[in-house]
Design a protein around this nucleic acid. Structure first.
Length: 298
DNA sequence: AAGTGAAGCAACCGCGGCGTT
DNA sequence: CAACGCCGCGGTTGCTTCACT
């Protein structure tokens, strides 16, 4: 008879070994089934069987009401999860694998105009889902731009912004103002919000893809000068706001009127309707023109 | 060989817009 | 016109893989 003192540690080791083994080979889902929500809907990774069911159902009945699709298809998933799985993975023509340099260039170019409007950007890239593009941006392109001294939100060299931000931090006597980073998070997030605000006005559900293409092909914003003027004005306005004491997240303070004014200045509001966007002209945004994003960096 | 961090990817969550009642 | 519910979008999280030490 083995004393309990000796059995217990052995048992613990055995159980953890089994657990690790199951986890490593994804057998845990079988050994310990994931229950999911209290209503019985399953969550987590999709199995091949579930994929087959979803594809088979959509092949026959097409995409209808996502709410009622799961029970009809014999799936214990919520409609949202089915939709996501279909759009990002199972949909015919969906392109997997690495992004080509051309695709990356296209993403950067569109992002410089549209901001984080991933769905709109995805419409310009057949086969790529918005989730795919978003993931690639967040995990790769954004960091690459940052490494090369380009603010991924404004698509402008960060050096100027850094100087301005540092002066802001110097002016700010509050201990809450971080001086560790050369870039103010509030400015970055503010810029992002501004760009998204602008993009919201010209893209997605409010306006069609054709209209966005028109914007992108508009000579008034494709000219480097026009763009620089716009950002110069942005920086001037930003500087003015920094001078004021009571505004830390300046761009949040922009109302619709001010945003519209800025958009008019950079020529976004008064666009013409002709032409098709050409990714090869992405140098127009100054990113490549600056020489900071050379071929070897891509 | 083991540990650790970065990168990549899949999926979930919460919110806002829009259509319907 | 308000309330409600669904859908789509963007942000975020968590897991796996890979590279490096």
């Amino acid at each position: 008879m083995v004393p309990i003192k000796q059995v217990f540690p052995m048992g613990v080791i055995f159980i953890s070994a089994v657990y690790s083994f199951c986890l490593r080979f994804k057998w845990l889902a079988i050994v310990v089934p994931y229950v999911g929500d209290s209503d019985g809907t399953k969550r987590g990774e999709w199995t091949e069987e579930e994929d087959r069911k979803l594809v088979a159902y959509i092949d026959v009945y097409g995409i209808g009401d996502w709410r009622f699709l799961p029970p009809k298809a014999g799936l214990q998933r919520c409609g949202k999860s089915c939709r996501l799985r279909w759009l990002n993975y199972l949909r015919p023509g969906v392109k997997k694998g690495k992004f080509t340099p051309q695709e990356e260039e296209t993403i950067i170019s569109f992002h410089s105009i549209l901001g984080n409007r991933w769905a709109t950007i995805a419409q310009q890239m057949p086969g790529r889902s918005d989730n795919d593009i978003k993931n690639h941006w967040n995990s790769c392109l954004k960091k690459r731009l940052e490494r090369n001294g380009i603010d991924p939100m404004t698509h402008q060299p960060m050096i100027n912004l850094a100087v301005k931000t540092q002066s802001f931090n110097t002016d700010c006597g509050s201990s809450s103002c971080s001086t560790a980073s050369p870039f103010s998070s509030s400015f970055s997030s503010g810029s992002a919000r501004l760009l998204n605000k602008i993009a919201t006005g010209i893209s997605s559900r409010q306006h069609g893809v054709d209209r966005i293409k028109n914007i992108l092909s508009d000579p008034s914003i494709t000219s480097i000068n026009g763009q620089e003027e716009g950002f110069e004005q942005l920086k001037i306005d930003h500087g003015k706001m920094l001078a004021s004491d009571d505004q830390t997240d300046d761009f949040l303070m922009w109302d619709e009127e001010k945003t519209r004014h800025f958009m008019e200045e950079i020529g976004v509001m008064d666009f013409q309707t002709n032409g098709v966007y050409n990714p090869s002209s992405s140098a127009q945004y100054g990113v490549y023109e600056s020489g900071l994003l050379d071929d070897h960096l891509i």
